[in-house]
Design a protein around this nucleic acid. Structure first.
Lengths: 346, 346
DNA sequence: CTGAAAGCGCTTACAG
DNA sequence: CTGAAAGCGCTTACAG
């Protein structure tokens, strides 16, 4: 058990802050919770006392007194998904600091907005909706119409209609393509993502922007459809590799497909990266499982959920769902170089 | 926010229970927390009132009054591990009900017990240690010596020295082998697990028990070493498949290696399961990513952490670390039949 | 073995 | 815009 004495900050209470700021405890509470309007001079005093004393509220007292707990729900589609672990990690971290409760709810990946609508207000105070659920049509509209605090993750968001957190898929895709070009590849095949996902469009656009600026060929037999699955990666890989003038590098728009390309190459007796370079996107567990390990783009998943929880906290505290502007916030990604890509031998 | 009125049970308090049982609130508290000895008649009365009223303590009040929070820490080795998500799911569920705090801590997979010892008592109240960290030598001894509440997961536990939760690896392995035999396979290759993991020994023993009872050949060129990695699976697969008298089925003792065998087969131009059946163990995400999907053994990971948290709660409540007997508790597993195994064509 | 009192650190509801 | 009082549901420390 962690007693008060063992914890550093725990001894500083709201009363201490009130004394330090020369106001009543009630005023401190009001400032901290955006409850009603506080004169801005008073507000500043309180805030600086909070800062100076490094006060952090006791969540147990808060929820006991108010009789309420803030419940943040993280939706997920697949319990054995590679993403889930990292998403939970970040959410857990933030939720712990804020004294919120984290609920984790499995829903069908193609859940209808109506199904979601039922338990919205009665069950949760805020929702985190990661891909691929964030791509379900109508969910943004529902949240907007209901005025319900919700943050969408890694869906290549539509600016202005919802709170979104992701990475710049277009730029990341360009970076990966430029990396391949920098290696010396002049003929690069591309495997598209699932047509229903907005990120697919962005990643492909990034790729095309890059190759066309470099004056390299693209489209036609160098562009193959895919569905973000391993199996579609095998088929696309086979198709690309068996063509008359096969590419020296293949950019699969996610890791599962890139792993599939590896399988296709091996089926054709081709060595990666000696005979063909293969790169993916996502840095999912399979990237470091297969051999050779995949060069790929890493998304900061746990950071995304961490920020999502913080954002939800702000939105909920405001009371009015429209105070915090609905924008897309882009986090840093990284290009991770591993063994699956190298310069072409030619 | 969830107010008291919205929640069903929230209105029944300890005071209600005390009245109902005709005792003081203090006595109820004592019964609930195993604090000091309560006359067993009184105890029964209280317990039945708790039951009848469906009382569940308000955790916020509890931790405010006591000034303490119970912190359960889940150790993990790899944030992008397939396991992590499901482990967290179960832990989160149980922790929410008990009003505990869940901390999640990354440690090196070969962490030394001494490193762990430092923050033990000062940082956590209980520890959940899943594989492969649970296989690190000396950790059990440390927990035992420190009298620290800890539960070990999926490590094919040593009875009596620690609290362990897992599945019967021996029997599960036998089941899988029997399944292959039932399909008609008479020559089954086996890929061993990492030699440092206790589960490797158990799985291999189960396999050998099964094939020897069926009068089938085993050992020799049908038994190959592996390290639970995809890459070692490729090598082992290649070795088995290239032998003079290759097996018609290969049992890889985890999914990553089974996926490697798939790659090996494809490299040799062999179709799975037509030319060779391949099965794994664990039902990790890769099992449903690769094609064909792997027939494998599924462990109830989230159930394991759920039980682990409950067990820790009991241990912590007892105050004395030796009251709850240190045993290995075995949960149900399941054999999941997918596309990678079929009857041999012969 | 059991109880009456005080208080944990906040917020609600009411004044002003 | 700000404050004094009461209380959230438990547990601690003290009696008996």
């Amino acid at each position: 058990m962690t007693t008060k004495k063992e914890r550093g900050k725990a001894s500083i209470t709201l009363i201490d802050v009130a004394k330090h700021a020369g106001v009543s405890p009630m005023t401190v509470s009001r400032v901290l919770n955006n409850l009603s309007i506080v004169k801005s001079a008073t507000r500043e005093k309180v805030l600086s006392s909070v800062e100076e004393l490094k006060y952090s509220p006791n969540q147990a007292a808060r929820s006991l007194a108010s009789g309420r707990t803030t419940r943040i729900c993280l939706l997920y589609g697949n319990p054995s998904s590679a993403y889930l672990g990292e998403l939970l990690l970040g959410a857990l971290e933030a939720v712990g600091k804020l004294g919120f409760q984290l609920i984790v709810n499995r829903v069908p990946e193609d859940i209808s907005p109506d199904t979601l609508k039922k338990d919205l207000h009665s069950t949760w105070d805020g929702l985190i909706i990661p891909a691929p659920i964030s791509d379900v049509a109508g969910i943004r509209r529902l949240m907007d119409a209901e005025g319900f605090p919700a943050v969408f993750l890694e869906s290549g968001g539509v600016e202005g209609r919802a709170h979104e957190i992701g990475i710049d898929d277009f730029q990341a895709s360009k970076d990966m393509t430029d990396f391949l070009i920098g290696l010396g590849h002049k003929r690069i095949g591309y495997i598209q993502g699932h047509p229903n996902h907005r990120t697919s469009v962005l990643r492909q656009a990034g790729f095309e922007d890059s190759v066309s600026k470099a004056g390299l060929p693209f489209g036609g037999e160098l562009m193959t459809p895919g569905f973000f699955t391993y199996r579609s990666g095998i088929e696309a890989g086979l198709q690309l590799l068996k063509s008359d003038n096969p590419p020296t590098a293949i950019f699969a728009s996610n890791d599962d497909m890139a792993a599939g390309v590896l399988a296709a190459a091996s089926e054709l007796g081709l060595k990666v990266p000696r005979d063909v370079s293969v790169v993916g996107f996502d840095d999912s567990p399979i990237a470091t499982t297969v051999w050779p390990n995949l060069t790929t783009i890493r998304q900061p998943l746990s950071e995304m959920t961490e920020q999502a929880v913080r954002l939800l906290s702000e939105i909920i505290n405001e009371g009015n769902n429209n105070v915090i502007p609905k924008t897309t916030s882009l986090l840093d990604y990284s290009l991770i170089k591993r063994e699956s890509a190298s310069a072409p031998i030619s």
